[in-house]
Design a protein around this nucleic acid. Structure first.
Lengths: 234, 234
DNA sequence: TAAAGGCATAATTTATAAATTTTGTGACTT
DNA sequence: AAGTCACAAAATTTATAAATTATGCCTTTA
């Protein structure tokens, strides 16, 4: 069940394969919020039977990316400004905690791994097209890796898993918001500042910078959604 | 899918019914850690077909109460002293955070609800049999309600859900440890002390008492497991 | 106009078939 | 003679297809 346990080849079961593709499509907002996930449609679109589809949907409903209504089928979780705020606030609290623990516990090896993670992220282009924004999967991957490394020294697998879940849900909001807004913001500078604070062992500053990083991202998304580029359901 | 959304009558789908019974049996350690969950056995024991069983197992594997190995079936999550420590540490961090937020935000209504929750817990007998310990489901329910109320004012549903998940996993360890050990400890006094600190608006003290409450419980369980009353798998 | 009943759609469950892993037996090698 | 490797049989998981059950809508009737 654990993606990390498997090699680079295709997943062992259809259920896991469908789960991953479905999750990716929800997080990238290819399957828009509130949309009904009808088995018939999913079966032909993902080329799978009912059983693996049902398993995937049940896993996703536990992760709160899919809402399952009894006897009425499955839906992509709707979005709301309230939830955006709640998720961001929670992420600030929990990742702040985790970063503090990481910096307290971890040694030079952790710092060096973080340095490398940042280096790789810094080299990757934010957009595939320099003119207009087009999401770069490699940058997304390295961005995720950097943030995971940041909290990876906290010595609590459940906490890390929770942080990743929050990050997933917030990534969906980010994918939903129009991409152009991100060009005006110097995200890479924020990452660099966080790294510098960590290497300087300035715990309070690092935590504060990380939290501001999350809050600024949320702010961009919020104004973007309020301007109606994507309508959230009631 | 949400248990709270349904009335007191039986669940709408077999999958949810099986999910709830299976979860209860895992948390009460009726299904012991490490045990293989064979479909054939589960089908006749829970009187359900493969599909609803499979859905329930997939939900539980996302909650980390069941481990699903690809092409090799499902197993009750094994226990370990390491995990016990990790879960306890994480619960101290996160519920400490949540309690702090609750006390900061919430008003008199929250305090009064906490007072009532404690009152009810205090009246319920810890054991059904005064002579030797026998788990009282009503006490367990009220105990859970008290702890949920304690963090219920933090205004973050994802955080509350995460706390409940940690609590579930730790309850399994508690159910596993021999029950007699709990007689020597004045758990009810600890709850009363926490309540008093909350009502006195002494945030630091309340958090510290709550964390000690979790750590003491873990300590009892740890020595109990080390004495080999229940053998954990490798 | 409102309520009741029937029809159509969709979710849920059971049953059956296919693929994969594990286990046990036997032969071959050291 | 003991251990290891390979092959075959059994058990189990996974997937597909069919049947059942529930829900929503539309029509009809009071």
């Amino acid at each position: 069940m654990d993606a990390a346990n498997r090699g680079t080849d295709s997943p062992a079961t259809r259920a896991t394969s469908v789960y991953e593709r479905l999750k990716a499509d929800i997080l990238s907002a290819t399957l828009e919020p509130g949309r009904k996930l009808q088995l018939r449609f999913l079966m032909e679109h993902y080329d799978a039977g009912q059983t693996p589809l049902r398993e995937a949907l049940n896993r996703l409903s536990t992760e709160d990316l899919v809402i399952g209504k009894e006897q009425r089928g499955f839906f992509v979780k709707p979005i709301s400004l309230e939830e955006l705020g709640e998720l961001t606030k929670t992420r600030c609290w929990v990742e702040g905690l985790a970063l503090r623990e990481s910096m307290t516990n971890a040694g030079p090896a952790w710092e060096e791994a973080l340095l490398v993670a940042h280096h790789r992220l810094d080299r990757a282009p934010r957009s595939l097209d320099p003119e207009r924004f087009e999401s770069n999967p490699e940058w997304e991957r390295l961005h995720h890796a950097f943030h995971v490394q940041l909290i990876g020294g906290c010595a609590s697998r459940p906490l890390i898993a929770f942080c990743e879940q929050l990050a997933d849900q917030l990534n969906r909001y980010r994918a939903l918001s129009s991409r152009k807004a991100f060009r005006v913001r110097k995200v890479s500078q924020e990452h660099a500042d966080i790294l510098a604070a960590v290497l300087a062992h300035d715990c309070e500053k690092a935590v504060a910078l990380l939290q501001r990083h999350f809050e600024r991202t949320a702010e961009v998304i919020r104004t973007d959604l309020e301007n109606g580029s994507v309508a959230g359901p009631g």
